[in-house]
Computed example of a mutant assay.
Amino acid sequence: MTEANDLAEAAAGADPRIGLRAAVALRRLADALEVLQVDNARRQGWSWQEIADALDVTRQAVHKKHAGRAVPRQEG
């Protein structure tokens, strides 16, 4: 079982202390994954609108959240 599956199982459990801690961990994991993939999309030339459409948010929302961060160049 993966860490994400373990966290999801814990978040659905009956113990609120464990469930809430798991919910925080899942949120952090999802945020890190979003940053990774937005950076990936920007390196590949995606527009803010294309990223927003994929995330099901507005262009303004995704730009506000991610535009201030420098996108590392892909090595190779």
Score class of each variant (00 low, 15 high):
28 R>Y: 08
51 I>M: 07
55 L>F: 14
32 A>R: 14
16 P>K: 03
51 I>S: 07
57 V>Q: 09
50 E>C: 05
26 L>N: 05
63 H>M: 10
21 R>H: 10
51 I>W: 04
38 V>I: 04
4 A>L: 12
26 L>Q: 02
14 A>M: 03
65 K>V: 01
53 D>G: 02
52 A>R: 05
64 K>N: 04
10 A>S: 03
28 R>F: 05
61 A>M: 06
74 Q>E: 15
22 A>R: 10
33 L>H: 15
65 K>N: 06
14 A>W: 09
28 R>P: 03
34 E>K: 13
37 Q>I: 00
10 A>N: 01
44 Q>I: 00
64 K>D: 11
71 V>K: 05
43 R>V: 02
5 N>F: 14
40 N>V: 03
73 R>C: 02
45 G>C: 02
65 K>I: 01
30 A>E: 12
57 V>D: 06
53 D>Q: 06
31 D>K: 13
9 E>N: 12
41 A>Q: 07
73 R>A: 14
50 E>Q: 15
40 N>D: 13
74 Q>V: 11
71 V>E: 01
27 R>S: 11
6 D>N: 11
26 L>F: 05
24 V>Q: 14
72 P>I: 01
9 E>R: 05
19 G>H: 01
70 A>G: 00
59 R>P: 04
69 R>I: 10
18 I>P: 02
42 R>Q: 10
16 P>G: 06
56 D>N: 13
52 A>H: 06
73 R>F: 09
2 T>M: 07
1 M>A: 07
40 N>W: 12
48 W>G: 01
18 I>Q: 07
58 T>F: 07
7 L>R: 02
11 A>R: 07
42 R>D: 06
20 L>R: 15
15 D>G: 00
36 L>N: 12
50 E>V: 03
47 S>G: 06
4 A>G: 02
70 A>V: 03
27 R>T: 14
12 A>W: 08
67 A>V: 04
34 E>D: 15
52 A>P: 09
60 Q>W: 09
43 R>S: 12
25 A>V: 01
72 P>N: 03
6 D>T: 01
54 A>F: 12
37 Q>H: 12
21 R>E: 14
32 A>Y: 08
13 G>T: 04
66 H>A: 01
12 A>T: 06
17 R>E: 09
52 A>G: 10
63 H>I: 01
25 A>N: 10
71 V>G: 04
66 H>C: 02
29 L>S: 07
11 A>Y: 02
24 V>D: 10
75 E>W: 12
76 G>L: 13
42 R>F: 03
46 W>T: 07
11 A>W: 00
41 A>G: 09
28 R>W: 08
72 P>V: 00
34 E>G: 05
60 Q>P: 05
66 H>R: 13
62 V>Q: 03
36 L>Q: 12
20 L>S: 13
74 Q>D: 07
48 W>R: 07
71 V>T: 10
57 V>P: 11
38 V>K: 01
39 D>G: 14
45 G>Q: 10
56 D>P: 02
58 T>M: 11
